[in-house]
């Protein structure tokens, strides 16, 4: 698949933003590490809204005809893409109301505040599921057609959110022991889940050039693709990556997405260094951005079978 930056930024930033909102609600629900101060809560919610907005705006850059984008909310009965849009928009009023509530009353952990925070967090988590299902429901791309996709989106969205929350706490003061522990646990869980995904997609299965053409008992070989130069199909679906190069990038991805953030958070906690904690945030965004890029480049659409690929 063509790795369009607009779509990579959509799931990367909005996933992190929704994860941050959900964890902000949970930390204030259970007063983890004494809960967030009203100021910290406001910064966390603002960052969450900012990330989600970056994601949503960049997704419109992917549209060839954005003047019809408003229609994308209409088919929520059948389309996961429409559902994602509906739930993402529903998240905004609750997140903004929580922000306003904390600003005027300072009640980051009173009943009204927590109600707003938890509804916003839940809507965000539902949106992450819809985003995962956009890809997981496609039977045409076996690397995406697995329940591990929404599971990965959850793990990584929450891991980004936890990293941002821990960094915010370290940088602005207050006990951060449990917050860093939570971030490390979520980063580790995300790393393991992504490892399971890579193991799962490494095994070839699904349609072949034989079932694509119907000559099930013979070897089939392309003689001519029938076009002079590339088509929409080759440009959108033709991308591929050699296994050795993919493995190198996966190693770097694990380094930036999981190893460096864990190391930076642990060190920042023991030294009380806010700048090192923000390095963890930058690293986790970069690393998971690379993961999302690989997610697209490694996805092999079955239409490639008609262009001569033996298996996808």
């Amino acid at each position: 698949m063509h790795p369009a930056l607009a779509v990579i930024f959509l799931t990367l930033f909005s996933g992190g933003g929704f994860g941050l909102m959900a964890l902000t609600a949970i930390v204030n629900d259970f007063q983890i590490d004494g809960g967030l101060s009203p100021m910290q809560t406001m910064v966390a919610v603002l960052l969450s809204v900012l990330f989600v907005t970056i994601g949503m705006l960049s997704s419109t850059a992917h549209l060839a005809n954005p003047k019809n984008a408003w229609r994308a909310f209409t088919r929520w009965r059948t389309s996961w893409l429409a559902r994602e849009g509906v739930f993402a928009v529903l998240y905004y009023p609750f997140a903004m109301l929580y922000l306003v509530w904390v600003f005027f009353t300072g009640g980051s952990a009173d009943v009204t505040g927590l109600l707003l925070a938890n509804v916003a967090g839940a809507l965000g988590l539902i949106t992450i599921f819809c985003q995962g299902m956009i890809y997981a429901c496609l039977r045409t791309i076996r690397q995406w057609n697995t329940p591990l996709v929404p599971a990965n989106f959850y793990a990584m969205g929450l891991a980004i959110g936890a990293t941002v929350l821990a960094a915010l706490r370290i940088a602005t003061g207050g006990p951060a022991q449990t917050l860093v522990g939570m971030a490390v646990a979520l980063l580790a869980a995300a790393a393991v889940l992504k490892g399971i995904y890579y193991f799962w997609i490494a095994r070839p299965n699904g349609p072949t050039i034989r079932t694509a053409t119907g000559f099930n008992r013979s070897n089939v070989r392309i003689l001519d693709q029938g076009h002079t130069f590339g088509t929409f199909l080759t440009q959108e679906f033709g991308h591929t990556i050699p296994a050795a190069k993919a493995n190198t990038i996966k190693f770097l991805m694990y380094l930036f997405a999981f190893v460096i953030p864990v190391w930076a958070l642990a060190l920042a906690l023991s030294l009380g260094l806010g700048s090192l904690a923000w390095l963890a945030v930058v690293s986790v965004f970069f690393g998971i951005g690379v993961e999302r890029w690989l997610f697209f480049v490694e996805a092999q659409h079955v239409v490639n079978l008609y262009h001569g690929r033996q298996q996808c």
């Binding site: 992917h62 549209l63 005809n65 003047k67 994308a72 199909l233 659409h301 239409v303």
Partner: peptide
Amino acid sequence: NKCMGCNYCSWACPYGARELDRVSGT
């Protein structure tokens, strides 16, 4: 008149039947 050119339907088609027109955006 309704298409917003998101390409999602072309991802769902196994037969490569749908092509985006870059000029009309549909």
